[in-house]
């Protein structure tokens, strides 16, 4: 379910989110009666949609690195009187650092580049819901290639750095959880 946004066309996701958050949608109605505000075409609404859209890009690396933590370490923690919550923060999370950082970086980069969902839910309001990617599109539409180029160059630089950081992190902690001795039979 959480992986659906990977294969779903962004405009389709955006459309359903719009319906859901809209004044006639169940979520939209609840939010309006609670906070007195509407979500579509606001920054908050865009935030909700972005989380839904980019969640799988964080969840997959998180889950993979959590699952890779050796089981005996969790059992060792339990037999040392550790609660599941403490085990998670003291053992699982530190040993999955590379995966967690990868997930955060990937979802950040992915959010930066989203387009379809933004247009559907955010509505491209300058200063409110216009994102960098949409801004580049607008510059091109207005034949302002200089601005489009400058913004694109910034994004290229950001993307490149993000990848570099991710790879560097993955190399530095290669399977940190496997440095313990061989698992027994």
């Amino acid at each position: 379910m959480v992986a659906l946004p990977i294969v779903l066309p962004p405009t389709v996701l955006g459309f359903y989110v719009l319906l859901l958050l809209g004044p006639n949608g169940p979520v939209g109605r609840a939010v309006e009666s609670l906070f007195g505000t509407r979500l579509p075409f606001t920054f908050e609404g865009l935030l909700v949609a972005s989380v839904l859209y980019s969640l799988p890009f964080a969840v997959q690396p998180f889950a993979a690195s959590f699952a890779a933590v050796e089981r005996t370490l969790l059992e060792a923690a339990a037999s040392l009187g550790c609660s599941p919550l403490r085990t998670f923060f003291r053992v699982v999370l530190p040993l999955s650092r590379a995966g967690v950082v990868t997930g955060l970086v990937l979802s950040f980069a992915h959010t930066l580049g989203e387009f379809g969902v933004v247009l559907m839910v955010g509505g491209n309001i300058p200063g409110e819901t216009r994102t960098v990617s949409v801004a580049i599109y607008d510059h091109v539409q207005a034949l302002d290639y200089a601005s489009a180029g400058a913004t694109s160059l910034v994004l290229l630089g950001v993307s490149f750095s993000v990848l570099a950081i991710t790879y560097a992190l993955q190399r530095r902690t290669p399977n940190a959880w496997q440095t313990a001795s061989k698992p027994g039979s």
Partner: peptide, 20 residues
């Protein structure tokens, strides 16, 4: 009674030291 409330220490064959 779950492991964490038994006060039993188990030494694993692989030792299961926390590598971090």
């Amino acid at each position: 009674v779950p492991a964490r409330h038994r006060g039993v220490s188990l030494l694993f064959q692989s030792y299961a030291l926390f590598p971090h």
